[in-house]
């Protein structure tokens, strides 16, 4: 066998080294395995710790929220403490209106800004991306205070101010998601469209938007799902209301706000209202998320069939 010149002490022959390595491998194997078992067990422990809060959360929302639910709870307006017939109908309507208006504001802007970024790579689109990144990281409470300073101080507490805040919250998420979806459209498709003599708006409308549609729908609906549950942008803007309000320029109520107001009260009935509202809110968020994914799946299937 070969002898290797070595700077570190006497040379070691290969066959001797092979013996040494084999010996080590045999001797240490049990220890290596035990280490693996211990660490895997620790990871399982970590998983349990991750799941424990979720399980507890879901358990309590169902256990305490479900008993609060009734048809009346979903359609009535709040009653003073101790008077039966309490409900959150106005909050549900408020959430739908505020979030709906926010979508109306954010979706077109998000699409246009994403097209801007995708079609004109350069300094300016870099700026738009940067703004999207900064806004994504902006705490939602800051957006709430911004909407307060900009709108509440001028037009007063209103559903509109809340919608604006939610729109600002959703915009960067939408821009990034739209951009992602559009940039997966192969370059060939853009070029094929242009080569056929189509003008750019046509290419965008028929090729890019159609191909990217599933991704765009998912991204926008997921942003909506997030906005539905947000409290911080609403807390300084829509003020809350005890009644059904349909006019966006008036103070309104929304489910996150109702939870916040009720949770901090000591009455058991208020807490029950909070749990019930949390149940409805979570259900709504889940429906929106599931819708986001399944709708995209449907659009994908449809595109493939045609």
């Amino acid at each position: 066998m070969t002898t290797v010149p070595s700077a570190l002490g006497p040379p070691v022959t290969a066959s001797w080294r092979r013996e040494l390595v084999r010996q080590q491998a045999r001797r240490r194997l049990e220890r290596r395995r035990r280490l693996g078992r211990v660490c895997t067990t620790l990871c399982v422990g970590a998983l349990c710790l991750s799941l424990a809060p979720l399980v507890s959360l879901v358990f309590y929302i169902v256990a305490r929220g479900l008993p609060a639910l009734s048809l009346g709870f979903l359609v009535h307006t709040p009653t003073p403490e101790g008077i039966p017939g309490n409900g959150i109908g106005n909050s549900i309507v408020g959430t739908v209106i505020v979030v709906g208006l926010a979508m109306v504001m954010a979706v077109p802007v998000g699409l246009a800004a994403a097209l801007f970024v995708v079609e004109r790579p350069g300094k300016l689109s870099g700026v738009v991306r940067f703004v999207a990144d900064v806004l994504t990281g902006t705490p939602s409470i800051a957006i709430g205070v911004f909407a307060y300073a900009l709108l509440v101080l001028t037009i007063g507490y209103s559903g509109l101010a809340g919608s604006f805040a939610l729109a600002v919250l959703m915009l960067p998420i939408m821009v990034r998601a739209n951009e992602e979806a559009m940039s997966t459209v192969p370059l060939d498709l853009w070029e094929a469209g242009l080569a056929l003599g189509s003008r750019r708006p046509r290419v965008v409308r028929s090729v890019v938007l159609r191909t990217a549609l599933p991704g765009i729908v998912t991204g926008n609906l997921l942003a909506m799902a997030r906005a539905i549950g947000e409290t911080a942008p609403l807390i300084f803007t829509i003020f809350g209301s005890q009644f059904y309000v349909f006019r966006p320029t008036s103070p309104m109520s929304a489910m996150p706000l109702t939870i916040y107001d009720n949770a901090t009260q000591l009455y058991p009935s208020a807490q029950q209202t909070a749990w019930g509202t949390a149940f409805v809110l979570l259900a709504l968020v889940i429906v929106a998320s599931v819708l986001a994914r399944s709708w995209a799946g449907y659009l994908n299937r449809k595109a493939r069939v045609r």
């Binding site: 246009a112 079609e119 902006t138 911004f146 003008r199």
Partner: peptide, 29 residues
């Protein structure tokens, strides 16, 4: 169509930018 479309894109980016600037300015103010 082309001009309208370009206007839309620029408009979207502009609104986005204006919102951001407004956020910074309003909060600082």
């Amino acid at each position: 169509n082309g001009r309208l479309y370009a206007g839309l894109r620029w408009g979207g980016a502009a609104v986005f930018g204006v919102v951001f600037v407004a956020l910074v300015v309003t909060l600082l103010q």
